[in-house]
Design a binder for these strands. Sequence first.
DNA 1: AATTTTTCTGTAAACGTGTACATATGTGAT
DNA 2: ATCACATATGTACACGTTTACAGAAAAATT
Lengths: 337, 337
Amino acid sequence: MASIKDVALRAGVSSATVSRVFANKPYVREEVRTKVLQAAQELDYQPDQIAQRLRSQTTSRLVALLLSGDNTHFHAVMHGVSDLAYHHDLSLLFCNTGSSSEREKHYLDQIRSERVLGLIINPQDYQSDGRRLNALRRRGIAVILIDTDVAHVQFDLVRVDNRKGAFEAIAHLLRLGHTRVGIVAGTAGIMTASERLQGYRDALLYAGVPFDDDLVKTGDYEIDSGYRLAAEFLDRPDPPTALFVSNESMMLGTLNALAERRVRVPHDLALIGFDNAPYSAHLHAPLTVVAQPTYEVGREAVRLLLRRIAEPDAPIIDVMLPTELIVRESCGVNLAR
Amino acid sequence: MASIKDVALRAGVSSATVSRVFANKPYVREEVRTKVLQAAQELDYQPDQIAQRLRSQTTSRLVALLLSGDNTHFHAVMHGVSDLAYHHDLSLLFCNTGSSSEREKHYLDQIRSERVLGLIINPQDYQSDGRRLNALRRRGIAVILIDTDVAHVQFDLVRVDNRKGAFEAIAHLLRLGHTRVGIVAGTAGIMTASERLQGYRDALLYAGVPFDDDLVKTGDYEIDSGYRLAAEFLDRPDPPTALFVSNESMMLGTLNALAERRVRVPHDLALIGFDNAPYSAHLHAPLTVVAQPTYEVGREAVRLLLRRIAEPDAPIIDVMLPTELIVRESCGVNLAR
DNA sequence: AATTTTTCTGTAAACGTGTACATATGTGAT
DNA sequence: ATCACATATGTACACGTTTACAGAAAAATT
């Protein structure tokens, strides 16, 4: 309630002096400084962030975070962002776009008028996000992308090596003797999905195993499509002997389909997932997964953001973090058939 | 960049008229209205939320969300909050307190100066939060509590029936013939933890089973304590035949301890958890759990908040949502011993 | 002692809105 | 023609800051 004027009045100085005290500016006598602090204390005064934000954009310390899914991957990313943001005294405007690109559009429109310092986003719409994010950047807002890039324009990007991650997973299965490896792929047009699919193809090519269109089914990274596509694979007369599932949500759906059909892992089917969800080690057959450094993705995004804020014209960076293949029992042993 | 004045100039009206158009106020000719909208369109104008917030607090539409853990329960709550907030055009200032009460304090201090309309919080510190939240309320900020209340002062509260939930879980185990049921309890002093412990006691009393201090171990709702306490239980000469674990994080720790010791569930140990994590059904032994309506908790919190904003002096509400016991295989069958 | 330089403080104008008030125009009733 | 009233628009100030500018006092230099 108490404003800077109240403090000034009480301390017997002008509001400019109070402002200087709270901004830790030089040119204010020590005696006056303590007097002001004293008065502020008594009035329980705190500078109004809104007024500060209105007056000068540099002191904003507000950052927007737009994430899409509600799976553990994005939760961990958020956690990383949140932790590092806290250490740098940044406030977080959180927007859950729930993988709806109209909702994302709404938030982006809103952010334009929120005077944020920067924006960390996992883009949903390759085409239109390019335009929108570029408009934001022209307004002086630092933009950092997570996982996927956008059309026409370049931004700082932090991502994981999806292609290599998928490659290693599939190579592992091929080494075990599998030749018919199915993939439950992610949303068509989403960068992570096509990279993981590409890693799948790379591994086949590398091992000299012919590519079979029937072994590729494309979902939407959501649990339902994981269920549906896994069911389709299993209900064929000639099901694959191994399955690679491109993210955690679809893996949950897949597990449902397996349970329903009493498919034993790894006896009937070898299984590898993307994302090392905390429970992966405790499933009926502990899951072999491609682990992403999720938390570190979030932290790295904040680092890039701070850098971009400090040096708006620094060259664009593309940070690629490594994945790790964690081998557990769900793949069985060599030549399981 | 374009301000209301630019639009006014371009449309050939005063800034007041532009303001009225965007606020959908009456007393502006249709012809003028379209002319203003046209000019705004051309200039890519959007009202500055910061200036709006400074000018009048009622139009703020900004809400703070303070949550503590990073388990699926809080993620689901956040999801519920976020979805309903979106539908009511509220922006979310997200603060992850990471179960550190100093960090919570920092955020609360900051929120005081952020001009938020309201605050949804899962309190960490029973004593000091009472004071701090009361100070916020006196400043006209609506406060809604999730899961736990605070000292000395009453706020709207949304929670689940922890006591009954735990009661039903334990009663289920006792009905199956277990007499030595251990509990991995949550943080001492936290309301949900003591309620769940109380439900445990209630069930014993109700069934006429004597209470045994050695069967109660108190953790801190984090994964490590779940591991440690489960290990303690298992490494005793006379381990319990059934275990009730008070939240999801500690359950993950418990599962680690079980795996290490090759304890078979439910053959060697019956197991019930709190929180129906999405993977619960897929564990080695699908987990019997007390399911919380987590997503609904988040939505309900927003509903209470909107109500409190609309009617600041309405009577305090305590919303109690029911839990559900989901019986799966981890408890085994009747009289398993 | 006069001048320059440095340190300290106050005045006043922004930042982009909303709104009370005043004013102007149009409508209908007397 | 006058008045009352509803409608429509503009003027000007306030919200709580920061900051350029100016001026005063102190310190340093000549």
